[in-house]
Amino acid sequence: MIFGDKKTGLIVTGATGNQGAFHIALMNEYAKSIGGRGVVAGVTPGKAGQEVHGVPVYNSIRDAMKEHDASASVLFVPAFAAGDSIMESASAGLSLVVAITEHIPVHDTMKAISYAKMNDCAVIGPNCPGLLSPGEVKMGIMPAQLFKRGHIGVISRSGTLTYEIVDELTRAGLGQSTVIGIGGDPVIGQTFTDVLARFSEDHETKAVVIIGEVGGALEEEGAKSAEIPIVAYIAGISAPPEKRMGHAGAIIEGGEGDARSKIERLKAMGVPVASRPSEVPRLIHNLI
């Protein structure tokens, strides 16, 4: 698995909001079921001293880290404050930020990612479901019941479509090492390229599914760099140009980033591309 394990302590920012509180409970339920540490502290400025599902809340990440051993944060703060929260995480010395928040202005994301990079902090997202390594750690909002531990890595720009394909893999007996949603925004921290590099160093992972969609060229860039066998699925072959398909980043602009040409370029690199989600397990079986 990559990015963390049972021993990883998590800090949730935006802990006292509806989403933050709800998912603290789910993350810790999962941690408890597998013997992991889970969420050790929450942060909401001005709410120090409160508790959320038994987790103590602090005013700042720095305050939380004085009392707890943590290496990653999971963000549920509102969009206008999310860039700030990413930078606060990086400044406090965390090595990973998982930004669940949607609708962050792109410039905020770009600045926060630059700042995080200067502090050796990796950013997953924004606008993502986080990651889940079955039996090890859940950082985010993925529904754990669909997952099973195994040797397939999954990297996706989507949320529910990831669950769909994970479900197909699990039903086909193909467990997962780490499943990671990198986010549906045009600018995201960890890209297919970055995550594939980590997977290729991970002895548990034998092959990786990359789930892409219309917009940009991150899938092709990732595939080009991959040093581990990969299979791809690209959503949006029926998407019309210049229309935003739900995700801020899912748009075919200036004739670039359409699904058909992405698929063609991937196939030209020798990457097997599934035409439907249900085809993914068979293509994986062919590889390993």
């Binding site: 529910t160 549906g184 969609e213 949006g236 072959i237 029926s238 935003r244 739900g246």
Partner: peptide, 27 residues
């Protein structure tokens, strides 16, 4: 999130990727 197209099958999904994928399967 809503985009109008010109076919006969209405589509409702949760999540952009899953909804897009449903459209693709229809095609």
């Amino acid at each position: 999130s809503y985009v109008e197209l010109d076919g006969t099958i209405g589509v409702i999904g949760n999540g952009a990727g899953l909804t897009m994928s449903t459209l693709d399967l229809i095609e």
